[in-house]
Design a protein around this nucleic acid. Structure first.
Lengths: 166, 166
DNA sequence: CTCGATGCAAAATTTTTGCAGTCCC
DNA sequence: GGGACTGCAAAAATTTTGCATCGAG
């Protein structure tokens, strides 16, 4: 599908969205929040609170761990960031690239990279299942844990270039 | 509580499996491990390590928190227990009822109950997607977070009666 | 100015680990 | 009897919170 993966304008959109969201909640725009947002969107893959702290500090050294933890819920509420559970450890987050299409996540166990695949009918399926139980869908995800058959190295924060959208 | 509360044979099978698994690994059979296994299978829903400790102690008061944490990995390795991520807190585990069919999990946000629904074609889909990426599936899950439209109370450990398998 | 936001550090939670005693095989 | 297993308690690791100060609007 049309994937405007990395374009200068991409850095604008999240910020606009975030700024509007803050305004709508009567929250304030601060340098720390801006730095945290930027750091999150610089991440090629999922990240932990600690990862985010490190990268946000690279942008604004005054960012503290407490602020990271206080900002993360705001970001998830805004829909810009999403929680995911990759490994079995801490909490992981990742940028919510598209709100439009439902994506299946293929999580590579070799390098923990995440590939997002369009799976539109999946969304329909979830709704049907929930409806059968008399419920309504809040969110859903299809996660496939898999591993490469050949050694294709994955890209993380520190290894730019990694992009995955089949 | 009583051991064979649900079905007489149900209490046997997991234990046989577990015993064999322990033997295959050269691990020993202890009262604590037996109590922990029983407690896990008494759970109607998912549970945390702390929940498991409480219920295991009801069976064998000598069970310690450390042993719970040391046994949990063994249980997951054996395939009898499975990790799930329901809310956003601690680790949750639940009994791995069926290895046969792929199940979609409908997680109710109102009461955190989990309904497992057969979704066989989902498995096929995951395999296809992974194959397209040159990977092979290790495991997969479809989780649907939903909420009731009417207040249908959920069943937890202490509230027997809750069963869900559509 | 006003009140939200932040940093720091202490606290709260969940999970892990060292050690000495216990008990399965 | 040997070595795995356990309980206890201290330690780690992650996330939360109180308080004084700072800064956005």
């Amino acid at each position: 599908m049309s994937e405007t993966s990395l374009q200068p304008s991409d850095a604008e959109e999240p910020w606009t969205t975030f700024r509007d969201f803050l305004a709508s909640r009567g929250l304030r725009v601060t340098n720390q929040r801006r730095a945290i947002l930027s750091a999150a969107f610089e991440a090629a893959q999922h990240f932990t609170a600690e990862d985010l702290l490190e990268h946000a500090r690279a942008i604004d050294p005054t960012v503290s761990r407490a602020t990271i933890y206080r900002t993360l819920p705001i970001l998830t509420d805004s829909g810009l960031i999403r929680e995911v559970d990759v490994g079995r450890d801490y909490k992981y987050y990742m940028v919510h690239r598209s709100t439009e299409n439902f994506k299946a996540q293929v999580i590579c166990e070799d390098d923990d990279s995440i590939h997002e695949i369009d799976a539109p009918f999946m969304e329909w399926y979830g709704k049907a299942v929930a409806a059968k139980l008399g419920m309504e869908v809040v969110s859903q995800r299809l996660q496939v844990q898999a591993r490469y058959r050949r050694d294709k190295p994955g890209e993380d924060w520190d290894h730019p270039g990694g992009q995955s959208s089949a």
